[in-house]
C-alpha cells in the first residue's frame, strides 16, 4: 500500500517528490505527537485526580474526553496581551524557541528497526544540541516581559536547566560508551544482545540494569530538565511565579505545549536509551513500535506519579542535587564503566 501511494505521488509531483514525501512523514510524526500532548494534559489531570481521591475532568464529552480540545479552543480565543515596555519581537519569538526544539528533535527518533525519519550517525549528539536550544525560550521570555518576576523566574529555570543538562549529558556519555555508537537505532539494537537476551529475558539485557545509577540520574534529571514537579521552580502554581507570568492566550499555550512535548520527548529518549526502545521484553513476543509506545507511557506515568507524590524542592536543594550529587556520581560511574569495559568482565562486546 505504501509503495502504491509512493508511486502515485511520484507521478503527481515529479522532481519535488522527495520533498513532498519527507513533508508527509513529518506530518505523520507531528500530528500524533500534538494529539498526544493534548491528551497527556487530560491524562495528567485524571491521574492526579485519582491519586487525590477526586474524579478529575468528566464533564466535557464522554468521560471528559473532549476536555483538552475545549481547553485548547479557549486558549486560542483568548487575547494575547503584550505588556507595555516589553520587547515585542523577542516576546513573541520566545515561545517558538521553547516549542520548536521539542518538535525538531523527533527527526532522528527511531520508532522501530526501520521506521525513522532521518537515520543519521550522530543522532544522539543532534538531540542533545537541539534540546539545549529550548532554554532560550525561557530566558528570553523572562527578559522580554519587562517584569522583575518574570526575569527572576527565567533566570531561575534557565540555571536549573543548564545544571541538569550537564548531569544528563554525562549519563548519555556512559550510554554511548557501552553502545559504541551515537546512532539511536544502533543503541537500541545493542541492547538486544547479551546473556539474558539469548535466554529470552531481553529486559534484563537493556541498559537500565548494568547502568542502574545512570538510569536513576537520568530519570531524575529529565524531571528537572522539563521543569516538572518536584523541581517545578519555573512555575509552582501556588507559591512561586515563573518566566511566563506575562503571557496569556495562545502565547502561554505554546509554552504549555512545549513543556508537555518535552516530557514526551525525554520519555521517548529514556525508553530508547535505557529501556530497549522497540525491543520486546521477553523472547516469545515480537518486537514492535507498540513496545516503544508502552514504555513511553510508563515513563510518562512516572512523571505524573512523582508530581502527585513529592513536595516541591527548595531552589538551593535543587542546585545541590545537580552539582554536588549527580555530577560527581556521573563522573565516578564514567570511570567505573570505562574500567569495566577494559576488564575481562566486559559484557558489551
Amino acid at each position: 500500500m505504501v509503495d502504491a501511494l509512493q508511486g502515485f505521488l511520484q507521478g503527481l509531483f515529479g522532481s519535488v517528490f522527495p520533498l513532498v514525501w519527507t513533508l508527509l512523514k513529518i506530518v505523520l510524526i507531528i500530528a500524533p505527537l500534538l494529539l498526544a500532548v493534548a491528551y497527556l494534559t487530560f491524562w495528567e489531570r485524571k491521574i492526579i485526580g485519582w491519586m487525590q481521591v477526586r474524579i478529575g475532568p468528566n464533564r466535557v464529552g464522554p468521560w471528559g474526553l473532549i476536555q483538552p480540545i475545549a481547553d485548547g479552543l479557549k486558549l486560542l480565543l483568548k487575547e494575547v496581551v503584550i505588556p507595555t515596555g516589553c520587547d515585542k519581537s523577542v516576546f513573541l519569538i520566545a515561545p517558538m524557541f521553547a516549542f520548536a526544539p521539542a518538535l525538531a528533535a523527533w527527526a532522528v527518533i527511531p520508532f522501530n528497526d526501520t521506521l525513522v525519519l532521518a537515520n543519521v550517525n550522530a543522532s544522539l549528539l543532534y538531540i542533545m544540541s537541539i534540546t539545549s536550544i529550548g532554554v532560550y525560550g525561557i530566558i528570553l521570555s523572562g527578559w522580554a516581559s519587562n517584569s522583575k518576576y518574570a526575569f527572576l523566574g527565567g533566570m531561575r529555570s534557565a540555571a536549573q536547566m543548564i545544571s541538569y543538562e550537564v548531569a544528563m549529558g554525562l549519563a548519555l556519555v556512559v550510554v554511548l560508551m557501552v553502545s559504541n555508537s551515537l546512532n539511536l537505532g544502533d543503541i537500541v539494537r545493542g541492547q538486544g544482545q547479551g546473556y539474558f537476551a539469548d535466554k529470552g529475558l531481553g529486559f534484563l539485557s537493556w541498559n537500565w540494569l548494568p547502568l542502574l545509577p545512570m538510569f536513576v540520574v537520568y530519570l531524575v534529571s529529565i524531571v528537572a530538565e522539563t521543569n516538572r514537579a518536584p523541581f517545578d521552580l519555573a512555575e509552582g502554581e501556588s507559591e512561586i511565579v515563573g518566566f511566563h507570568v506575562e503571557y496569556s492566550g495562545m502565547a502561554f499555550a505554546v509554552f504549555f505545549l512545549a513543556e508537555y512535548a518535552n516530557m514526551i520527548l525525554v520519555s521517548t529518549l529514556t525508553s530508547i536509551l535505557f529501556l530497549g526502545g522497540w525491543l520486546s521484553p521477553v523472547g516469545f513476543l515480537p518486537d514492535g513500535i507498540l513496545w516503544l509506545l508502552l514504555k513511553v507511557s510508563a515513563v510518562l506515568f512516572v512523571f505524573l506519579w512523582v508530581r502527585a507524590t513529592f513536595p516541591r524542592y527548595r531552589y538551593d536543594q535543587v542546585m545541590r542535587l545537580g552539582w554536588k550529587v549527580f555530577i560527581p556520581l556521573c563522573l565516578i560511574w564514567l570511570v567505573v564503566v570505562g574500567c569495566w569495559m577494559m576488564s575481562p568482565l566486559n559484557i558489551w562486546k
Partner: peptide, 14 residues
C-alpha cells in the same frame, strides 16, 4: 550548536 549556542551564549545572555 551544543557548546556555543546551548551553553556559552546562554551564560552570555545571563
Amino acid at each position: 550548536v551544543l557548546i556555543y549556542v546551548g551553553a556559552v551564549m546562554v551564560l552570555f545572555l545571563f
